[in-house]
């Protein structure tokens, strides 16, 4: 098991040959409304450039966090990697092959869990596993379900429906479902955003524990500086939108396995934290100023 590839981290502009996921000159434009019909109804709208010229190389087995002010297009970028949103220009390469749509090589964890309320915990996982591999044997399938339910600490809750679970437990199901299809990359869109502070902290440590066992490439979106520092190897800081771009990439040198107390003792912790804070404050202030000025 290799540690975080801190030393191999590249600058954004350089193209890496070892990268698992390459984001190259990616731009997302939400087209406006034009044409005579829309003019007549007064519904014309200009094109909106959400993100512009994003370049990012992600090495295998790296935990990457994307952080930025709200509305900067983080989720748009993640949806493009997931294949849920089309890419306006540029390309996203997974193992050298361009991404054209959604696929089971990428597992997604949603902010609102997105569990099917009519399925039990086990059925939610089974739906994922059987969709990806319809011909899977019942024995193998049940072994996978058991393994991942145990991994996220949900053994015993198999027969419960999502509405009977707490928010934290629901997101555990969400994580188990994303991992059960054995994806190459795990995409997490503000996975703890809807949780209360205590559950959030607890689940962050759980994710750190699970990551130590699985070491999958993870791309996570977050608003929380502490969360990014606890979990990630690299932190991608984005500027405000429209036409958001990558401002800076931080390498996080803390040794693993980590926990909240030990990383705070690390000499690099205060500096990293201060840098992220000043970046986020600056961008957020600019966003607010732009809103007031309008």
């Amino acid at each position: 098991m290799r540690l975080a590839p801190v030393n191999t981290a590249t600058f954004v502009e350089q193209q890496s040959s070892t990268a698992q996921l390459s984001i190259r000159n990616v731009t997302k434009v939400f087209p406006g409304k034009r044409g005579w019909f829309n003019k007549l109804t007064g519904k014309t709208r200009r094109d909106f450039v959400a993100i512009q010229d994003i370049n990012l190389e992600i090495e295998p087995n790296t935990f990457v966090t994307i952080i930025g002010p709200s509305g900067c297009g983080k989720s748009t970028l993640l949806n493009m990697i997931a294949g849920l949103s089309s890419i306006s220009s540029g390309e996203v390469l997974l193992n050298g092959a361009p991404i054209t749509g959604p696929g089971s090589d990428r597992g997604m964890v949603f902010q609102n869990y997105a569990l099917m309320p009519w399925m039990t915990v086990e059925e939610n996982l089974r739906f994922a596993v059987e969709t990806v591999d319809p011909k899977i044997s019942a024995k193998r399938r049940d072994r996978i379900l058991k393994e991942y339910l145990q991994l996220v600490g949900l053994a015993g809750a198999e027969k419960k429906h999502p509405h009977e679970l707490s928010g934290g437990m629901r997101q555990r199901v969400g994580i188990a479902r994303a991992l059960a299809i054995n994806p190459q990359i795990l995409l997490m869109d503000e996975p703890f955003g809807a949780l209360d502070a205590l559950t959030r902290g607890f689940l962050q440590e759980e994710v750190e524990r699970i990551w130590e066992q699985q070491r999958k490439t993870v791309i996570m979106i977050t608003h929380s500086i502490e969360e990014a520092l606890l979990l990630s190897d690299r932190i991608v800081m984005m500027t405000r939108g429209p036409a958001a771009r990558i401002d800076e990439i931080l390498d996080v040198p803390f040794p693993r396995p980590r926990n909240r107390e030990t990383i705070q003792q690390h000499p690099a912790y205060p500096k990293l934290k201060a840098e992220m804070e000043s970046h986020l404050f600056r961008e957020t202030r600019a966003v607010e100023a732009a809103r007031v000025g309008r």
């Binding site: 696929g103 089971s104 597992g107 997604m108 949603f110 997105a114 969709t131």
Partner: peptide, 11 residues
């Protein structure tokens, strides 16, 4: 969200 789940799984 439900449709996105089905989509990402390639259903």
């Amino acid at each position: 969200d439900y449709l996105d789940v089905a989509n990402t799984l390639g259903a």
